[in-house]
Structure formats: C-alpha cells, structure tokens
Design a protein around this nucleic acid. Structure first.
Length: 832
DNA sequence: ATAGGGTTAG
C-alpha cells in the first residue's frame, strides 16, 4: 500500500526535467541517461495531457536506447506516441526505426515502414537488405539491392559488405565477383571491412588464390582480415598455409582472438594433428577463449575425430553448458562412436538442464535409437519431435525413418516417407538401405527403380545398397542393369560403388564378372582386395584367393582382420592345412591382428574338413578365449562329413549349452545320427526340438528367369508349371538311376522306408528349382540356384550326377558358400 | 547521429 503510494507520488514529479538539470553537473556521456521520449513512453498517458513536443533527434535517441536495451515494448510505445502526437520523424530517425524493428525480428514492420517513408536514402536500403538477409528472405534482399542500384544511390563500403554477405548466403559467389568489379572501380578494395567480406566470397567458392590477392591488397590489415585469410586456407585444405600465415600475423604483433583460434584448430584438425590442437587448447585456456562456444566446438571436433572422445568430454565439462550446439555435438559423437549409453545419458542431462533440444540433438538421439534398435524410445522421441514442430526437418525425418527401418518396422518408415511432399535422395536411400538390411531384396530393388523413374539423383549409397539387394536375391540380371546405369554416371570410377559391384557379382555366382570389375578399377582400397579375396573363397577358388592375397602384399596394402577371414576360409575350402596354419600364425606375428572367433572357426573348419578331427579338438582346447557357437558348429560340420558321431554329439552339446534354440545344430545332429542309422537318437533329437519349441526353417530355393525370381519350397506344388516340373523331375530320376546312382537317403530325418524317403528328397526345393531352370533356360546355359539353408547332402550328390548327364554347369549358393557343378564334380570337393 | 567484415555439428 505504502509502496504503491510512494511510487505514484514519484510519478507525479516530472523526473525528466530533473535529469535535464543534473546533466551539466555530473558530466555523464550524452547517451547514457534515459531520453525524455523514453520516459514519456513509460509514464504513459499522464504526459499526453501535457503537450510534449519532441524533435526527431529526441526520438532517434529513444529508439536507439530501446535497441540497446532490447526493449521491444518500449520501442513500440515510443513509436506509437510519435504517431499520435504527430511529431515529425526525419529520414535519419526513420532509418533507426527501420533498424529497431529489424533488430526485434519484426521485419514485416520494417518493410511496411520502408514502403511508407516519404524518402529513402542508401542507409535505408542497406538496413532493410540486412534485415531481410538475416531472416532468410534472400530474394527480396537481392531485389532491393537491384532497386538501390537502379535508383542511383551512392555505393559505399556499407553497401558492398552487405551485398557480399548476401552473395555468400545465397550461395551465388558469381554475384559477389561482379560486385568486385565495382568495388575496384570505386577504390574500396583496400578497405579492411570490404576486403574481409570479399575474401569470404572467394574463400566460399574455393578461389584461394584470388582471396590471397584481395588479402594482400588490404591496407592496414586488422585481426579480422588476417583471421579471414587464415580461415580461407583452413576451409580449403591448405592447413599448412593457414599456420604459416598465422606466424606472419604474430610477427606483425597481432594476437589471435576467438575467431582466429577457431580457424586454427580447424586447420589442426584437417592435418589431424591432435598435438597442435592441444597447444591451441592450452592457449585458449590461458586467454579464457575456451569459454567461447565456437572455440569449444572446434576443440570438441578435433578431439572427437582424431583423438580421444574423453578429451572432448573434458572440454565440454569445463565450459558453461548452456549451448545446445555443444550438447548436440557431444551426443552426436557418442552416437557415432556407438557409445549409446553415454549419448543417452547426455541427452537426459540436457533435458534436465532445460536446454531445448533442436533438430541436431534429435537426429543424434534418434541415431542412438537406431543403433540400439530401441523402437519404443524412438516412438517417444518421435512424439516429442512432433510436439516441438520439428517433424518436417530434413535430418530429423530421415533419422526417424532410419529408426523404424532398423527396428524392422518398415511400414512405419514407409508411412513417414509417403507423407513427405518431396522425398530427397537421403530419404530414398534410408528406405532402400532399410529394406536391404532387413533382407527384402525385391522390395529394395522396386524402390530403387521407382527412385530412378522419379529422377531423384542417386548416390554412392543408393547404388551400393541396390547392388546389395541384388546379391540377396542373387539376381545377376538386375546387377547387370544397375551396372550399366552406373557406367553412365560419374560414379563409375567410385571405389565404394565398384566394391559393391564386385561383391554383388560374386554373390550372384558370377565370379568372373566380379574380377572384371576389380581389374577395371583405377585404384583399389583394402575393401576391394578383401571383397575379391572373400569372393574367391566363397567360390572355392582357394588358389585365386591366395594369389590375390600375395598381389595385395606386393602392392603394400596392409591386410586386416577381414582379409584373413578370406584367406583362411580359402585355405579351408581347398584343404591347404599347412598354408592355413602359417597364415594364421602370421596374423598375430607379422600384422599384430588378434584372431577373432571367425578366424578360430575357420581354423577348426580347415583342420576338421581335412579329417584332422583330433587336431581340431586340440586347437579348440588351446584357444585363449572361450569358443563360441560358431567354432563348435564348425567342428560339428566336420564330424558330419567324417561321420564321427561321438565327437559330433559332444560338439552339439556344447552348442546347445550356449544356445539351446540353435536349429542348425539339431538338424546337423539328426543328419549325423541318421547317417549311422541310429533312429532312436534321431527321434530323441526331434523330441528335444519339439520340447524346446525349435522349428526347422522350411527349405526354400529360388532361380532367376529373365529378371524374374521364381521361388520353391520343399514339396511345393503351387507353381503354375508344377506339372511340367514334376515331369522333368521324373525324367531326371530315371536318368540318374540309370547312371547307377544309389540314393543316399540317410539325410532324411524320418524313420520311414527307403522308398518313401526317396520320394521325399525328390521334392526338395533345390531340385524343384533345378527342374524349372532346365525347362525355362536356354539349352547349354549355366543354371544358378540359391538356397536359404545348407545344401542337402543327397541333392548335392544328385546335382553332381545331373551336371554330368546333361552336360551343363550348375551353380548353387547355399547359406555358406557356392557349389559349382561341372561334369560330375563340385568345386567344394564335397566338403561343406 | 543511422547501416558493415571473419568462427562451431549431420
């Protein structure tokens, strides 16, 4: 009550008149006290009764004060008063008002004012152009510049810096270069402000040499000019020049500021010199520039990319954590390093600190959801994103699509995609990669062709995932079509795309075409060599794989872990036990590569297949790590080939101890018992499978006829040509039997009479596919069949016979490898 | 008196 009274009492006293009196006494700088017009606005209507006439200068002071204080409401009130009182505002004052509305982000108000102004000068134009540039209305800004030019206003340094900045933001450096001509003509080139802006234009378009010419021409180079040139070098892969220029700058006695440090750290990053980064970090700490978010950001960048992510974390912890960019950056790096828990915990902390996540934070945390296949968390964040209105942000949308795709919910991913008004290449790619990774090769390829028809530009990612899709369904025809599309683009020499082509041809059964692509490549990376070596290994071309491995070493390419998986499995496919052991030992001795489970499994397979079952067992005993399912299963496979029931059941026990649901093991075990005709054991295995709810995946094979995939399941009669197929099978049966072949019906799991068993194997999916291929494909051409499981033993033997009888090459890709049949022999040497 | 230059993340 009292307070209120006192305040209203003060109000009745005209303070501004008091201030006017005090000014001469205490000589405060002119602009530091409140102007009368501001007070007038604050006091409101009280002064309306008192006729207060203000001149334009008073209003100008008032507006400027409101700008400085960021007081939006007051600014508007003062403007309102001037309109009501009819006080005149001259051009000078109106320009400040233009600027005020621009600063308060009400550019529409600025535009309105600009249109209503009785006259305008160059300052009015410059102010509005800047305002429009800042809020992204670039077209209007450039039109305004044209008008300024047409109306014949003077072109001074301010105009030039403004329009140069516009040219960079519009990504039209050519526009900036045209302006350069006028700048030179008017002699503004040597001005430090104009020079720095010009420098930026050239730097942006990568014209380092022209930038340097501008820099050299600047008279009285200040820290901004030096920093501009340093940053130009740093941005355009001339890090050494950046550092050299920096020492020149030190020599003329200038000290780096936060801008300079940011560019220098960036240069250090492009040299991947963490040591230099650390020196600059030290200097930044001394000068407190680490408090600058930009300096901090570039330090985070260099540590996370080339050093230790924990160093980056330390930088992050040492600064005030109120910058969403730094948070997002840390989260993104953790997500990329697959440190998902850390990324999530930071995201939670950020929310807790009431820092509003932006599109970057959301896309990073969504990447975490994709990494950990966290569908529920992804959904939660999705709704959060929608609430914040960020669901149309490009990166966020693609990250969301990626989460759903990675979690196997391709429908949801597709739904987001179909809601996009214009899906760009990344969203198409996300979808194609999603379908490919979930194993839906046909859907992925359908999308690829839709993308092609929609004329969306295709990238490295598009082609490699489409080729991967071809590999899944083993469609060599479509791989060829995509290959011819690629050869018409500038990606035909791309290493990643070429590597995908090699892999795709190899997986489609066409190892010769794979090699052609390999030979045609201008340069090979480690992946090219690995892909080719592993391709040869899968095709049992062990000697080709090993000779390529030696060529690789001659080219001084250092093999990695994957190379040795290829090399060792090549040895195991062709039974090179001695070589294999040598390569295995050289891995750790020569190349410092620790053997992984895959390498151990390769070795067990190598020893086991060659009949050295005891050596294989000994090898397992000597492993420094606990063997996993893969290793035991490798030995079990060898036991099956060599019919060692005792060791085989031991292996099976080991596998089922680790993974009681491993269906392959049950199948292998029943095959093993069946081969020894111990039907009670087979029955036990089947019982145990039923008890544990393990089901045998149905055998399925497919074959491509004129770019169309035909698939067959065991005993499948659903194909329209089923009658023809069965007639063909009957014919083959007679032919094979006449050739003296006796069916190895052990492989059938059921305890039924041999006649029935034989009928059962004659409807195995691989035989159906083969019969269909024989009907449909050109006589004499190679037949290529894909199977989802391991090749059946009996079918394998029959395929060998058939290849001899009909004198045709047959290729079968099973879950592990390729089998090339020719004239009664299989490339696998009957070990698989 | 009013307008201007350079630096961080996919």
């Amino acid at each position: 009550m009292i307070k209120h009274f006192q305040s209203s009492a003060t109000k009745t006293w005209p303070i501004h008149s008091l201030i006017r009196q005090t000014v001469p006494l205490v000589s405060v700088p002119r602009w530091s006290y409140q102007s009368e017009a501001v007070l007038l606005a604050d006091e409101g209507d009280i002064y309306v009764s008192r006729p207060a006439k203000f001149d334009s200068y008073a209003y100008a002071r008032a507006f400027q004060e409101c700008i400085n204080q960021g007081n939006h409401v007051r600014g508007k009130a003062v403007h309102g008063h001037s309109l009501k009182s009819g006080d005149c505002l001259d051009l000078f004052c109106l320009n400040i008002l233009l600027n005020m509305y621009a600063k308060f982000d009400v550019v529409d108000e600025s535009c309105k004012l600009f249109a209503e102004m009785p006259t305008r000068n160059m300052v009015s134009f410059v102010t509005l152009i800047q305002a429009l540039t800042k809020c992204g209305r670039l077209l209007e800004a450039s039109q305004l510049f044209r008008r300024l030019h047409k109306e014949g206003h003077e072109l001074n340094q301010f105009v030039f810096t403004t329009v140069l900045k516009l040219s960079v933001i519009m990504e039209l450096p050519e526009f900036g270069w045209c302006v350069h001509a006028s700048i030179s003509k008017l002699g503004h080139e040597s001005n430090a402000y104009v020079g720095a802006a010009l420098l930026d234009t050239y730097s942006f378009s990568g014209h380092v040499f022209d930038a340097k010419k501008v820099f050299d021409g600047i008279v009285g180079k200040d820290i901004v000019a030096w920093t501009g040139m340093i940053s130009c070098y740093a941005d355009n892969a001339c890090a050494e020049d950046a550092l050299q220029l920096y020492s020149g700058m030190i020599m003329v006695g200038l000290k780096p500021n936060n801008f300079t440090l940011t560019s220098l750290i960036k240069a250090a990053a492009s040299l991947s010199s963490v040591a230099l980064g650390k020196t600059l970090h030290g200097y930044s700490i001394k000068t407190s520039y680490t408090l600058d978010p930009y300096v901090c950001g570039s330090l985070l960048d260099i540590y996370a990319k080339y050093g230790d992510i924990e160093d980056a974390r330390a930088v992050f912890e040492a600064v005030p954590q109120n910058d969403v960019i730094l948070w997002s950056f840390m989260i993104a790096r953790y997500a990329q390093a697959d440190q998902n828990e850390e990324a999530l915990s930071l995201f939670r902390q950020m929310m807790h600190a009431s820092i509003e996540p932006n599109e970057y934070s959301f896309s990073s945390v969504l990447q975490v959801c994709a990494n950990i296949r966290g569908l529920n968390m992804g959904r939660q964040i999705h709704s959060h994103v929608v609430k914040m209105g960020l669901d149309s942000e490009f990166f966020v949308v693609n990250a969301l699509m990626n989460v759903y795709a990675k979690c196997g919910n391709l429908e949801a991913s597709m739904e987001i995609f179909s809601c996009l008004s214009n899906g760009n290449d990344v969203s198409w790619n996300t979808l194609i990669v999603g379908y490919t990774q979930q194993g839906f090769g046909e859907d992925a390829l359908r999308l690829f062709y839709q993308m092609h028809i929609a004329q969306v530009p295709k990238t490295q990612v598009t082609y490699s995932s489409a080729l991967q899709a071809c590999a899944i369904i083993a469609s060599v025809e479509q791989a060829r079509q995509i290959h011819s599309l690629i050869s018409k683009t500038n990606l035909s020499d791309d290493v990643v795309v070429s590597n995908s082509l090699i892999d795709s041809y190899a997986k489609c059964g066409n190892i010769k075409d794979a090699r052609k692509v390999f030979d045609a490549m201008i340069e090979h990376d480690l992946i090219s060599w690995n892909t080719m070596i592993c391709g040869y290994a899968a095709h049992s071309l062990g000697n080709d794989a090993l000779s390529l491995f030696h060529q690789m070493k001659e080219h001084n390419i250092k093999p990695n872990s994957v190379t040795f998986v290829g090399v060792l499995s090549a040895c195991s496919n062709v039974g090179l036990v001695h070589h294999g052991l040598n390569y295995f030992n050289s891995m750790s001795e020569e190349y410092c590569i620790n053997p992984s489970m895959e390498h151990y499994a390769c070795m067990v397979r190598l020893l086991g297949r060659s009949g050295l079952l005891n050596d294989a067992m000994e090898f397992i005993d000597q492993m420094p790590v606990e063997p996993n399912v893969m290793v035991w299963r490798a030995l079990l496979g060898a036991c099956l080939v060599h019919k060692n029931i005792h060791l085989g059941s031991l292996c099976a026990e080991k596998v089922l101890e680790i993974d009681p649901q491993d269906e392959t093991t049950y199948v292998l075990m029943s095959n093993l018992y069946a081969s020894g005709r111990s039907w009670e054991h087979v029955a036990l295995v089947r019982k145990s499978m039923r008890a544990k709810g393990v089901k045998k995946e149905p055998g399925c094979s497919w074959i491509e006829i004129q770019s169309e995939i035909h698939s067959f399941c065991m005993g499948d009669n659903s194909h329209p040509d089923t009658r023809l197929i069965h007639a063909m099978l009957e014919w083959l049966n007679v032919k094979v039997n006449r050739a003296g072949y006796i069916s190895n019906v052990n492989v059938v799991l059921h305890d039924i009479d041999d006649d029935q068993k034989e009928r059962l194997v004659w409807v195995h999916s691989e035989r159906l596919a083969l019969a269909f291929g024989l009907i449909k494909l050109r006589p004499g051409s190679r037949i290529c069949i894909i199977k989802n499981l391991r090749f059946c033993q009996d079918c394998h033997a029959v395929f060998k016979e058939i290849s001899k009888i009909i004198q045709r090459q047959i290729t079968v890709r099973d879950i592990n490898r390729f089998h090339h049949f020719e004239d009664g022999i299989c490339s696998c040497g009957d070990y698989w």
